[in-house]
């Protein structure tokens, strides 16, 4: 009986989550679309061109939010990992697992848009600039997490192994950032053009903030959707397992 109650409890929270997600998702999706359209309109038709960077400043409106979401994605994973290690909460596992590919995509986009911005500004697609390099290493951390999830079949074990790795990674991120900064100042005393100008004018800051809000909402829309799918996937797997068990039992009874 207690075991049955235990399984019920484990299912109950995901069930409540499914309900909550279904209520929130439509609203959040609408909000995302609204913010994104506003942000794009402001970015393309209202924001002036930068006195230094011309129209390429438009890339900043997506590049900066992507870079910010790359870091936020890893923070979400870290917090979820702490939750899954300490409280063994199944939803924390689900949250950590599904945030990884989304965060990795945003990190990749931050790198790609950064290099597309770098070509007209610096003359090359890639510079071993401190920020770019540490974002690249962050991307590798994401890849490692996803690979570990893939490699371990049993979801609860994979979840805890990935949680350990995620926390180790988050302890390491400041050290990596610090060492890359150090390395960069050693090798490039004449630093590349600084992107943060004197001060950002509000006509550029407003669209930037709106775009950042839009992509943050988009992150959570995708995260909620992916989490819902992951809960379904685990239900399907559990049902397939019990089905196999039941079939085995009936066959055993017949024999």
């Amino acid at each position: 009986m207690t075991q049955a109650e235990g399984t019920f409890n484990r299912l109950a929270n995901p069930t409540r989550f499914m309900g909550l997600a279904s209520t929130i998702l439509p609203w959040l999706t609408c909000l995302t679309a609204l913010l994104l359209l506003t942000g794009l309109y402001l970015a393309f038709f209202v924001a002036p061109e930068d006195y230094q960077q011309g129209h390429t400043v438009k890339i900043m409106f997506i590049h900066v939010p992507f870079a910010w979401l790359a870091m936020m994605g890893y923070s979400v994973i870290t917090i979820a990992s702490i939750g899954s290690l300490i409280w063994r909460h199944p939803m924390a596992d689900v949250a950590a697992k599904t945030a990884a590919p989304i965060g990795a995509c945003f990190t990749l986009l931050a790198l790609v848009t950064g290099s597309l911005w770098g070509k007209p500004m610096w003359g090359t697609y890639w510079v071993w600039d401190a920020r770019l390099t540490s974002v690249l290493l962050l991307f590798f951390l994401y890849l490692g997490l996803m690979a570990l999830w893939q490699a371990i079949e049993e979801p609860s074990r994979a979840g805890r192994a990935a949680a350990i790795l995620a926390i180790v990674g988050s302890v390491n991120i400041p050290i990596i950032k610090f060492s890359v900064d150090w390395w960069n100042t050693l090798h490039q005393p004449a630093s590349v053009a600084k992107l943060d100008g004197p001060s950002i004018h509000s006509s550029i800051l407003t669209p930037l903030l709106i775009m950042a809000a839009a992509f943050t909402c988009l992150f959570f829309v995708m995260h909620l959707m992916a989490m819902r799918t992951e809960v379904l996937r685990r239900r399907v797997q559990a049902l397939q397992l019990t089905h196999v068990d039941a079939a085995g039992v009936t066959q055993g009874a017949r024999a």
Binding site: G144, L165, F178
Partner: peptide
């Protein structure tokens, strides 16, 4: 320890650990 008992542990291990080696490499060479 993380990749213990996994089939293709060696390659996975490199992917997991090499980014964490970056600070050691940087300061050793520096």
């Amino acid at each position: 320890a993380l990749t213990l008992g996994l089939g293709r542990g060696g390659l996975l291990l490199a992917l997991l650990i090499l980014p964490l080696y970056a600070p050691v490499l940087i300061f050793g060479v520096a």
